[in-house]
């Protein structure tokens, strides 16, 4: 299987009241195409930090991230932004939808940023798959938490990214909605061979992954292939 993303010896330090906190202490990992990864670990072990580095939201103290063999942090801001638009999708715990845009506009936003109109069939399919066909024109404030998260997933997938990064996507949802969202992600992984990297501490969510990476103290301490 082709490698989508590779992290090499990632370190991330944060200054904190005069001291340095080492959030990541040399993370090496490889993400292969079509797989569903889950990163688990206790709060503060560096899961979200790792995800932010992999998405290029933050820069590492040292180490590198290769997305399709391109070093993310060697790219200019503009190139990095373009890469993020086309190859990465991100799902946040708190949905992070723009309240002034309708569900459909939120979904289309990455395409507009890329000055393209996108694949209409794919957009329709997404809305169908996510059960949002009848709510495309609704605004986030008119949607439930689960629906908002589904819109966020649709937005992350609309540009057909190489990798979908999800940061605690069920964290703000009740159990039922959480399971539904995870089922959708799994469906995307299976139906469209969408590569997914999930950060969670929800054991239910972990069960949807096929590979589980365990983090402790800023390091990946184990890798378990479930399927």
């Amino acid at each position: 299987m082709a490698t989508v993303l590779k992290a090499e010896n990632l370190h991330k330090d944060y200054p904190n009241h005069g001291e340095t906190v080492q959030a990541l202490r040399g993370v090496d990992m490889t993400i292969e195409e079509g797989r569903f990864y889950a990163i688990v670990g206790r709060s503060g072990c560096g899961k979200s930090t790792l995800l932010h580095l992999l998405g290029g939201f933050d820069s590492p103290t040292s180490g590198r991230v290769l997305l399709d063999d391109e070093d993310l942090f060697q790219l200019s801001d503009v190139a990095q932004a373009a890469l993020r638009r086309r190859k990465l999708g991100f799902v946040f715990q708190a949905y992070q939808l723009l309240p002034e845009l309708s569900a459909e506009e939120n979904v289309r936003l990455p395409l507009w940023l890329d000055k393209g109109s996108g694949d209409e069939q794919w957009i329709d399919a997404l809305f169908d798959q996510l059960g949002l066909s009848k709510k495309r024109m609704r605004f986030p404030s008119e949607l439930s938490g689960g629906e908002q998260q589904r819109v966020a997933i649709a937005r992350a997938l609309v540009a057909k990214p190489r990798l979908l990064l999800a940061d605690e996507p069920t964290g703000n949802l009740d159990r039922g909605n959480g399971q539904a969202v995870m089922a959708l992600l799994k469906q995307m992984n299976v139906s469209f061979r969408q590569t997914i990297l999930l950060v969670t501490h929800d054991s239910d969510a972990v069960s949807y992954a096929d590979t589980v990476l365990k983090m402790e103290d800023g390091r990946i301490t184990s890798k378990e292939v479930l399927q």
């Binding site: 939201f57 932004a81 373009a82 993020r84 991100f90 992070q96």
Partner: peptide, 9 residues
């Protein structure tokens, strides 16, 4: 948010 979705500076 826009930047995380790929907007440039």
């Amino acid at each position: 948010l826009l930047r995380s979705l790929g907007a440039s500076p």
